[in-house]
Design a protein around this nucleic acid. Structure first.
Lengths: 186, 186
DNA sequence: GTTAGCATGTAAGATGTTACATGATTGC
DNA sequence: GCAATCATGTAACATCTTACATGCTAAC
């Protein structure tokens, strides 16, 4: 996965160092994906060997900077990954990591992918709602309140992502996703 | 992490096989945590060596079943893990995996932990909202619509979990978390 | 001058997954 | 009789984190 996120980063911006790439990832998808130098640098070397990126070392003062650039072959491989369906059982984070780079895709294409994903989410949510109904009738409910609460967590999270899909697949204004009530500083 | 989830499972139910444990995990927190036999069986052996579980092999017909039971030492270690604060930068999934077992904790204790976690989420959400405002004024917004959409994804997800915390920490009825609109079958 | 941030990298180990190997039992 | 599920386990590999090692540069 990280190899494609690195390629996507270089697809967007040229002449980045490993350090820059980490910052770009952290600032962009840091809320659901973490990458450490211990994984970035070895992968950059692998991508070099595979010919998906090139690298020119530059000296800034005494410090060497290795600036990476994606190749045509690298672009091809990256777009293939973007277009590819997710493996079964993938997390939302994997999906969102792709969405982060969807600006590189034709618009209809991106919307279709989100619609397809939304369908899966709706089906899954309905499944969980059915499950929750089975618990509702049990008498000793308070003995597994927290256990049950995680099921509702799943349902809420799914619903919020379904709502998100509804807005994004139509390219509506994103601001409407946030109820602008009270964001008082605490 | 998995070692504690296994201990928690045996805390709840005795005389489970490795196979049973996997099913319990899958049905309970399968929506955000996966465990394979390739990790469960080796960990069960480790827990045996550490004295946190015991095991009696039983023959059902010709088939051997290894049924595991948690020890007092195992209970102690499990509760310690439950009480412990999460390491920084942990995912929501790690937190929820603990909440799933919170029925084993005194009630006030559990509520406090959820309140503490909620505070972090609110602070983090406000940070992301601030970030999103910086993007709003840019002119070429449509060039990074999807990039920006993942930021809003983060905000929505956080808000939905904050709402969840509000209900659960007060032990309110969980059903109110789901808007009972239209769950038509498709 | 000293702290924070820039910059690259490695080695050890944690923590899994996937695929394989094997076979019993239950329900249709 | 056949498929699905129950049941245990290993070996190879994948993937990443943590801690270490090193040193430059900008800002205060």
């Amino acid at each position: 996965m990280l190899e494609f996120i690195i390629l996507g980063t270089l697809f967007k911006c040229s002449d980045l160092t490993g350090y820059d790439i980490r910052k770009y990832i952290e600032e962009g998808i840091g809320m659901f994906y973490k990458a450490s130098y211990g994984s970035i640098y070895p992968i950059l070397n692998k991508l070099l060997q595979q010919g998906y990126v090139t690298c020119k070392g530059e000296l800034e003062g005494k410090r060497e900077k290795k600036k990476y650039v994606i190749t045509d072959e690298g672009r091809k491989v990256f777009i293939e990954w973007l277009e590819e369906d997710l493996p079964k059982g993938s997390s939302m984070e994997s999906f969102m990591a792709k969405v982060f780079f969807f600006d590189a895709l034709p618009d209809k294409n991106a919307a279709d992918k989100i619609t397809a994903y939304e369908l899966k989410l709706v089906a899954y949510k309905n499944e969980l709602v059915e499950q929750s109904k089975q618990y509702e009738t049990l008498k000793n409910k308070k003995d597994f309140y927290y256990k049950l609460s995680t099921l509702y967590f799943g349902i809420c999270k799914l619903q919020s992502i379904i709502d998100w899909c509804d807005v994004v697949k139509q390219r509506k204004e994103l601001e409407q996703l946030v109820q602008q009530e009270d964001i008082e500083e605490e």
